[in-house]
Amino acid sequence: MTDREIIDLYRNGQQEQAFNHIVEAYTERLYWHVRRFLCSHDDTNDLLQDIFIKVWAALPSFRGEAQLYTWLYRIATNEVLNFLRRQKVRAMMSLDSVSNILSKKIDEDPYFNGDEIQRVLHKAMNKLPEKQRIVFSLRYFDEMKYEDISEITGTSTGALKASYHHAYNKIKKDIEECF
């Protein structure tokens, strides 16, 4: 079922069916998107449930000006950023940094099956500023178009290209220093 058909279903009064189709189509994609930021399966699982509650609550206000999938990614990304900001406050109280906390999570994660270069790559991502991290993740791993990332972040494609370039070079440098 296409995004358009899901929205039509919702507008025809079949809200629960439409929502079920969204869950079916997007749970996995949004999970991986969130997981790349939070690094931990448990945190991702918790946040994913919150994201879908937000999606359900916000669906009546979806006007169809954006694509359904960029709208869903936008909600998920906002939830991720809120989660990371809360982590930042906790990290300040424990005199640690969020990137250190997230790096520890990668090291302790029993569900991380990558090699050493991938480990360094994902740890390097945690050091990036928010916007660079978002654009790098969506472009490098999901191969998303800049126009779509622009809809998600509300940033111009030009600014996104510059952010991606900076992020790419920082991560490359981090990996090259290790190997």
């Binding site: 929502f19 079920n20 869950v23 079916e24 749970t27 996995e28 999970y31 991986w32 997981r35 790349r36 399966h41 699982n45 994913l48 449930q49 879908f52 509650i53 359900w56 994660d109 569900y111 991380f112 099956n113 990558g114 090699d115 270069i117 991938q118 480990r119 790559l121 994902h122 490098y140 791993f141 790419y168 991560i171 490359k172 990996i175 090259e176 190997f179």
Partner: peptide, 30 residues
């Protein structure tokens, strides 16, 4: 080094049957 295709692969995994159970859980919660 970032041009290597294997680096774009997902290094994370999930417990067996996770996506089926989480979808059901989300539907029930919502």
């Amino acid at each position: 080094i970032l041009g290597r295709p294997e680096l774009r692969k997902n290094p994370y995994t999930v417990p067996d049957g996770y996506f089926n159970s989480v979808k059901e859980s989300i539907r029930i919660t919502d």
